[in-house]
Design a binder for these strands. Structure first.
Lengths: 315, 315
DNA sequence: TGTTGTTACGGAAAACGTAAATATT
DNA sequence: AATATTTACGTTTTCCGTAACAACA
């Protein structure tokens, strides 16, 4: 039994049971992979892979269990590498953050400069995607952490922590009827008032859109959503063009910057939402990653973050 | 990096940083162990062990983290061996049950015959100890499961499940004043009545003794415990000799067997207790071990047991 | 001075790549 | 026929034990 064998098994599973592919990816000879796997199977006294003649087709029942354990072993071996990196160069390395546009544009700018000041040698990389994609990225270790409002908490294999909460805000042109309301009238705004106008908001599964839909549905209201986009900048652009009333995340509206738009908070209608940060369960978190999470979720101390990540059910 | 190195690191830690000892236990040469560890340290680029000159003295800070990860890796490697055993000989193997006397004598006889019928080839072994010792045994993998009422739930690193609940019962000789009470009078028995008599019960930390003490203390009662023992058989023996009133677990009193003793249920006074079964977190559980747990805790399905053991926080 | 850990060295074993054979689609 | 896997085989590397050396307590 050795790590090489485990590596080969893992890669073969990942490459859809194609030994040749696995060997190529691992920069080694295909017969070597074949032999190593067979030797492991012999040592364990079971077939890991389902074979049709010579072709590998899938995992046997025992193989499924073995593959799971092997995955965990290799994950820990990867952790070992991270540990050594951490102690060798505590404040150097890379940090890949997977997030939605909203986070990248409006939330992260609040923490990235401070992070950069503390860890000038860490190379930051932002990747964007839908919340579901973000979860996948973290699970496949293409990103270290994900930041999003939707969907993250549901993914098994992820550990998520709350960062901050926010509410939706309507944005309209200054000429729009809604912009003429007194602030006390604005506070009495109802869903019924809203459906009178064409709406512009996020795409499905972005920045609280799920909640928006649910609220309309639960109240039997049928909004006329004329345009949807994944980011508030696009939404604001079309609102400015007079396409309709925008519904965006509060963090994305800044009265000083957005002088040609009027904002009306509507948390009362669509509820309060929690943006969360997610990491893959069981991975070793380098000091600077923990620090980044600390900056993102200042309410929680490092202790709490560590406890959650290590899956302490003690607290 | 290889498994051999991990094995050496683990054993060296276990043997109090004595390489010679570790090598002896692992049936290999001491220089080999030394070299392998140094090579691992070089590859990781850090010192795992604190050295005073040449002697190993302890773990460095990075070493502590490395040792933890290494432990997890080796635990999973051990799991792999168990998996292969399981699939090679599904219904053969050994099952070591760590339990208190009460469990061995009164609870397990209810499930062992059925288990034996289903797995005639499994070699059973019962080891006894105090609940704290049982927890240690399971954590050190000297036993597969522990069954006890006290203390198991508190141990980190253990996963525990409730098996059954029970109440205490008083046992007295037929001549004893308490034996003369009508059953309705017995139901009105108070702690104040009890402290009139010398008592015979479990030792500290056995079979709900903690709860007994707490109840007396909370009520400001000062019982005269003239004799304490770890098992009900011993207690009953001295009760028969007229030493006093026995307080034992309900499961340990059987009116048909214990004809020379009268039993009076006192759950009302000392509360209801839950006997739990514990396994080490993260270990692969062979089918027959799961079956044994199923027999012990019939209320829970196998699904629930598996979920708990795999640490599913989903449910 | 006895105990413990590291370095040096050499034979044995295994690891791994190339080439050939065999099976699958 | 083309692709994929296993078997065969020889070289290279690594492994691991003995012996010698070095450093603590």
């Amino acid at each position: 039994m050795n790590l090489q064998q485990f590596k080969f098994v893992r890669e073969t599973v990942r490459r859809d049971f194609n030994l040749t592919e696995a060997a190529r990816v691992l920069h080694t000879s295909q017969p070597g992979v074949s032999k190593a796997i067979i030797e492991l199977e012999d040592e364990l006294g079971l077939r890991i892979f389902e074979r049709h003649g010579k072709r590998l087709r899938g995992l046997t029942r025992p193989g499924q269990v073995v593959a799971q354990v092997v995955d965990r072993i290799m994950a820990e071996v990867d952790n070992l590498k991270k540990v050594s990196e951490e102690f060798a160069r505590r404040d150097e390395g890379g940090l890949t953050i997977a997030c939605t546009h909203t986070q990248a544009r409006y939330a992260l700018p609040k923490v990235v400069p401070e992070f950069r000041r503390r860890f000038p040698k860490v190379h930051l990389s932002l990747v964007q995607g839908s919340p579901a994609q973000l979860a996948e990225m973290v699970l496949h270790e293409q990103a270290d952490i994900a930041v999003a409002t939707e969907a993250l908490a549901q993914s098994p294999g992820l550990v998520t922590l709350p960062c901050y909460t926010w509410e939706h805000v309507l944005v309209v042109t200054p000429e729009h009827p809604l912009a003429q309301l007194t602030s006390s009238a604005a506070r009495k705004l109802t869903l019924a008032d809203l459906v009178e106008y064409p709406l512009v908001t996020y795409e499905r599964a972005f920045s609280g859109r799920t909640a928006i839909d649910r609220v309309f549905r639960d109240n039997g209201a049928h909004p006329d959503i004329v345009l949807e986009a994944i980011d508030a900048d696009v939404i604001k652009t079309y609102v400015e063009l007079g396409m309709g009333v925008g519904i965006i995340a509060g963090v994305a509206y800044d009265p000083r910057r957005d002088r040609n738009l009027v904002g009306i908070p509507v948390g009362r209608l669509f509820g309060r939402h929690t943006t969360r940060v997610a990491v893959k369960a069981g991975v070793f978190l380098r000091d600077y990653i923990l620090t980044f999470m600390e900056l993102l979720a200042p309410e929680l101390g490092r202790e709490q973050i560590l406890a959650a990540v290590n899956g302490d059910n003690t607290a």
